[in-house]
């Protein structure tokens, strides 16, 4: 899906506008999903994801984790860990990811996978980082000016009113 988003942006079929974040300067980082990057499509898919995120939030507002792409750490949400009943171990596993995200200083972590989304959301709460986990479609719709009021459940207070579409039409 991310490769398609990137293709559509390159072809001009999607025209996200990152200027909503020029003055706000809200920082975003990105979790490379193991399944999509390391295990399936490699670094080209990771580069496509970065193209999409930067096109939506602005180049200067994207901060990468280290290490990243094919060398990224798993967040701990994969392999069925979320449903295995071993919550204590799952959170312990996620400590590396939590500290990686905290080091970027980003308020938002774009998660390209449902398991990552659930796990990173929980890590932010559990370890007190306070960062949010958001799906890529959320920031893409935000930068396209089509993200409705009710579609902002994973966004913080500061983004509830930003780039809202006109509801009168």
């Amino acid at each position: 899906m991310y490769t398609l988003y990137a293709t559509w942006i390159r072809e001009g079929k999607l025209k996200p506008d990152p200027s909503w974040n020029d003055e706000l300067g809200i920082k975003f980082t990105l979790q490379d999903p193991c399944q999509i990057v390391r295990k399936s499509f490699g670094d080209p898919a990771a580069d496509d994801m970065r193209l999409v995120v930067k096109a939506c939030v602005g180049e200067k507002n994207f901060i990468d984790m280290t290490p990243n792409k094919s060398n990224n750490f798993c967040c701990g949400g994969g392999g069925g860990f979320l449903q295995s009943g071993y919550k204590e171990q799952r959170l312990l596993y996620g400590q590396i990811k939590d500290s990686q995200i905290k080091k970027t200083g980003a308020t938002y972590c774009v998660t390209g996978c449902h398991n990552c989304h659930a796990q990173i959301h929980e890590l932010g709460d559990h370890f007190g980082g306070g960062y949010h986990a958001v799906h890529a479609w959320t920031i893409l719709a935000l930068a396209l000016g089509v993200l409705g009021r009710s579609e902002r459940i994973h966004l913080g207070e500061e983004l509830q009113e930003v780039n809202l579409p006109d509801s009168s039409r």
Binding site: R38, C74, G78, G80, F81, S84
Partner: peptide
Amino acid sequence: PWFCTMCTRCVH
């Protein structure tokens, strides 16, 4: 085996 997410970073 249930704590390993099979992320394949070890193979990498």
